[in-house]
Design a binder for these strands. Structure first.
Lengths: 146, 146
DNA sequence: CTGATTGCAAAAATTTTGCAAGCCT
DNA sequence: AGGCTTGCAAAATTTTTGCAATCAG
């Protein structure tokens, strides 16, 4: 709702109009630290802009993805999640129980520097995901008919 | 179809039955080097097992994900892609035009070692994604309406 | 034999689209 | 005023589910 938050400034700078619907979605994105689904964003956005429609949420999420603000990820249950793109995300996911650990450490800096040199990309975010089995799930072999 | 390929052996070892439908999906997964969508897998699998149903493809892809053979990823258009989990994937994606570059270099080994120590996970695959703008897209600022 | 697995088709859930009305600039 | 944006609701897609019939082991 606040039309001078970092994200609104950013949209504005890119030449997009700041409509009530967009402000509502931006508010949700700036407020929530969770992984967002379109449905969740719609729900929360409605507390700011009751009349907002589903389609607008999808369109705004796509827009924010294009701007590099959000990133869609897939966690294995039939649906997307959006996370903040900035600063990178570092996930350790268990393929057994689905639990996800976020870790800080990140030696991505060197890689980013290297990739920018090699491919000429201007890199502004990254996602590092490591998959395996957590201590509990590693105990049992992966078995049939579970 | 070949019941002694690496993947069939793996399913077998985990206690799953090797049905024609599963063999068909496995054949597709072992053959194709592309990013797979459920729809594509269904199509291709039909050349091996014409009677295979949609649901079985979904169930088998989920099964292979659980086994750590595949990994679902989201590339920004409303749908999942499955990629081989093994060996890691290294993507450089342009948020402007969507182009994706795959690169080899990977300093994930140290990180994996460290993470296994710290969290006790048994890590068997990883996905490193860097997002930014490719040389061409970096030229123009991200602009509104088009 | 036994029970895991399938295929079907319907049900759910998720996304996209078209377009007149609305609102930001 | 101009034209980007919206909201609605229907259409299109994508996934999931229930269950009797199959089939692998």
């Amino acid at each position: 709702m606040n039309p001078t938050s970092p994200l609104t400034t950013r949209l504005r700078a890119a030449g997009y109009r700041l409509t009530p619907a967009r402000l509502a979605v931006l508010a949700v994105v700036e407020t929530s630290h969770a992984h967002l689904t379109p449905a969740l964003v719609l729900d929360e956005a409605k507390t700011h802009a009751p009349q907002i429609g589903r389609a607008t949420v999808y369109r705004t999420l796509e827009l924010l993805t294009e701007l590099g603000v959000l990133r869609p990820i897939y966690l294995g249950d039939g649906g997307v999640y959006f996370i903040r793109a900035e600063g990178g995300h570092h996930h350790l996911v268990c393929t057994g129980c689905g639990q996800m650990v976020e870790f800080d450490e990140c030696m991505a800096e060197e890689m980013i520097h290297d990739l920018q040199e090699r491919f000429g990309f201007q890199i502004d975010s990254h996602l590092l995901e490591f998959h395996g089995r957590c201590p509990a799930c590693a105990v049992y072999p992966v078995g049939a008919a579970g």
